[in-house]
């Protein structure tokens, strides 16, 4: 991937507008995210936070505007964009009838992954108690399932993390762990876009804020 070295890794959002059944949710929304930056999206319920994240992922189609990844409209080259993207959404995307190991093995087969990543090690790092990796996920708690969803971030080699309420259902230790993950990702030149209702402690990271809604 030559784009890894050319230094133009950035996400540009250009005049996005979203309307739902002719009601304008947001309009004329532009921002740029550079390597190493974290963007925190704020706004009241219904301001379109989740919709914005889904637009950035290319799941929802905006009424107007484009999202560019490394200078190119991401809709023109979805495969390249998606190799760089890891999304943890409102739904965990964890199959309950599979074990944590199987779930992450699926992630491993689908995306671009880190060299030498060891799933068991990742599960240990995200704090899944030993012995749970072979249990069906339906037996795990909501917080543990959320942790497995977040473990995707450590398995894939994605540069852009888009996280919708990543702290939901996590305990204090879990939140601390996610904060650390975000910080080290940003320090290594990654980018993060997240929504959250919690106060986030991200140290000296380059954090931008975006307010949606009036």
């Amino acid at each position: 991937m030559n784009d890894k070295t050319n230094g133009h890794v950035r996400l540009e959002v250009d005049r996005l507008e979203l309307t739902r059944n002719d009601r304008v949710i947001f309009t004329d929304l532009s921002f740029t995210l550079e390597a190493g930056q974290i963007l925190q999206v704020e706004g009241h319920n219904g301001a379109g936070k989740t919709s914005l994240l889904r637009i950035l992922c290319g799941l929802t189609m905006p009424s107007e505007g484009v999202v560019r990844w490394c200078g190119e409209n991401m809709r023109d080259d979805r495969d390249r964009y998606y190799a760089d993207l890891c999304y943890v959404g409102h739904y965990p995307g964890v199959k309950e009838e599979l074990t944590p190991l199987e779930n992450l093995a699926m992630v491993k087969s689908l995306g671009r992954i880190r060299e030498g990543v060891d799933i068991e090690e990742v599960l240990e790092r995200i704090g899944l108690p030993f012995g749970h990796e072979d249990q069906l996920c339906s037996r795990l708690s909501a917080g543990q399932r959320r942790r497995i969803a977040l473990a995707r971030l450590l398995v894939t080699d994605a540069r852009l993390w888009i996280l919708d309420e990543p702290f939901t259902a996590l305990d204090i230790a879990g939140r601390r762990m996610v904060e650390e993950m975000l910080m080290s990702h940003a320090k290594a030149g990654g980018m993060v876009i997240l929504t959250t209702h919690h106060a986030v402690e991200l140290g000296d990271c380059n954090v931008k804020m975006l307010h949606l809604g009036a």
């Binding site: 992922c57 799941l59 979805r78 390249r80 190799a83 999304y87 959404g89 964890v94 689908l110």
Partner: peptide, 11 residues
């Protein structure tokens, strides 16, 4: 359960 989203977002 949201895995379909993940499938759509695979490269």
């Amino acid at each position: 359960d949201g895995t379909l989203e993940q499938i759509l977002l695979s490269p």
